[in-house]
């Protein structure tokens, strides 16, 4: 596959992931749809291009590690894992239901492909830092990725983790911030602004890339840059749109943790079919 075909393939996978997200949340009538849609390209790039993985051996030692620190976007995470082949897509029908193993937030003991249980905001990034540190102690060449929300970085623990990562020169760690600008209660700027995020992270000792989080070329470039950075961790600040791909969900914090009704689902599906 050449570069153009690869980018086209990733675009199609992201479109499919969006349909999976919307369907999963609709069928569960529960789940976090807005932040799942904003992170569709990031997760697609990780699972279908960047990370070394083998769905047949979910705990393969040489794999790259991933921690979903914004643990509520399981519709996107489980969707990517299922599309990659870690478990059957039809299992998503059980999402958030008592009979299912697919918990509302990631559980490393229940779901194949999940490296760390997460969900309580601010905690996943510390675990990712611990995993990256373990990689250094083992002298391994696998890398550790973690995805955070931009509201999540209001948690003080996140900055504790950033200080630790820079202190220990964890250049095998790549932190991605899904910068959609919205949190559950509204705009991050109107609530407790973490901006400017890039300057803060540079001051905390990170190599920082600011990219369009829906543009695969920029995402893959940023990952490449991160891989080539020595002596410091990388933070990719991915500018995204919450609810991306569904017109009436875009940039609406009200779609943070709400499921569409039948009519809304039908409209969302029509819009996402066009994107195919």
């Amino acid at each position: 596959m050449n570069e153009i075909e690869k980018l086209q393939d990733l675009k199609e996978k992201a479109a499919e992931l969006r349909r999976v997200i919307v369907k999963t949340v609709y069928e569960a009538q529960s789940g976090h749809i807005g932040g799942s849609l904003s992170s569709a390209e990031i997760l697609t790039a990780l699972y279908f291009s960047e990370m070394k993985l083998d769905p047949a051996q979910p705990r393969m030692e040489e794999r790259d590690r991933f921690v979903l620190s914004k643990g509520h976007v399981t519709p996107a995470y489980y969707g990517a894992l299922a599309m990659k082949g870690f478990f059957p897509l039809e299992d998503l029908k059980g999402f958030r239901k008592l009979e299912s193993y697919l918990q509302g937030h990631p559980d490393r003991n229940k779901v194949a492909g999940v490296d760390m249980s997460s969900g309580s905001l601010g905690q996943g990034v510390s675990a990712a830092v611990g995993i990256a540190l373990a990689g250094k102690l083992k002298g391994a060449d696998w890398r550790t990725y973690t995805l955070l929300g931009d509201g999540e970085i209001q948690e003080g623990q996140v900055w504790e983790a950033f200080m630790f990562a820079a202190q220990h020169k964890l250049d095998n760690l790549c932190v991605i911030i899904d910068n959609n600008g919205l949190q559950a209660d509204g705009s991050i700027d109107a609530i407790a602004s973490p901006n400017p995020i890039d300057e803060k992270l540079r001051a905390f000792g990170f190599s920082v890339c600011v990219i369009d989080g829906h543009d695969f070329k920029e995402i893959l470039n940023a990952f490449r840059q991160a891989r080539n950075t020595r002596g410091m961790p990388t933070a990719i600040i991915a500018k995204t749109v919450k609810g991306k791909g569904v017109s009436f969900m875009e940039n609406q914090s009200s779609w943070h943790g709400k499921a569409p009704n039948a009519e809304q689902f039908a409209q969302a599906w029509r819009e996402l079919e066009v994107a195919r």
Binding site: A127, G130, A161
Partner: peptide, 8 residues
């Protein structure tokens, strides 16, 4: 959290 990551 770092301890948790190391344990995994």
């Amino acid at each position: 959290g770092v301890a948790a990551g190391l344990a995994t």
